[in-house]
Amino acid sequence: MKIYLKALSLHLKSELEYRSSFIISFLSQILVFFSYYFIIIAMFSKFSNIKGFSMYEVLLCFSIIQFGFAFNEVFARGIDKFDDLIVQGNFDRLLLRPKNIIIQVLCSQSDFVKLSRLIQALIVMVIALINLNINWNIYRVFCLIFMIISGIVIFFGIFILAASYCFITVQGLEVRNVFTDGGKQMAQYPIGVFKKGFVYFFTFIIPYAFVNYYPLLYFVGKSNNIIFGFSPLIVLLYLVPCIVVFYLGIRHYNSVGS
């Protein structure tokens, strides 16, 4: 952990060396992110609800998912860009070191420009929370915290899975985007609004529904089932197979040489 923080501060310093470039990229990222929730707001200017969810409920869902995704883009960039490590042969170097391999991959890169998304996601979240009439109690506070954490965890898991894919081939990596960006795009809306087949897929195969649907139902008072409030914890279990797959991949890893 200490090593990771040290690496983070080094990355931050090196990015800030190019200050004007950093600031402009930061601004353009704010615009990119704006275009995401602009779509939602524009749709709600024509429609009053989506399958019974109001605009602020969708925005809350959106902000939790985007927060989780952006968090990983900033702090787990090394896993997102794992193919660079493999293609350049730098992964061999990491394997030689006597430290946990995932921590090392995490240390290899970070992207502080994406902080702009993280901050904006937080702002959207706060705005949504203010405008929703939440019947606050201690369980709902926990529910919200669990949702945010599970949002981070699920994308971490998916990033690790996508990284494991690089052990098989580094060709056609755009397919990964279907699961990372595509999943993010879908999960901006509560999974329950989609057709049944998709809901099952995103409950049992990739458990988005436990991040943004079941807990949301409890949180906004559409359901009184308190188990829904704690359902994001299931996502933590999802991390286990992801990490196992990653280690299996390492065992079969052939260096590309460098």
Partner: peptide
């Protein structure tokens, strides 16, 4: 799928 869900929820022009 998002659009379909919106349209199925109806309401509005």
């Amino acid at each position: 799928m998002v659009y379909v869900a919106f349209y199925e929820s109806g309401s509005g022009s």
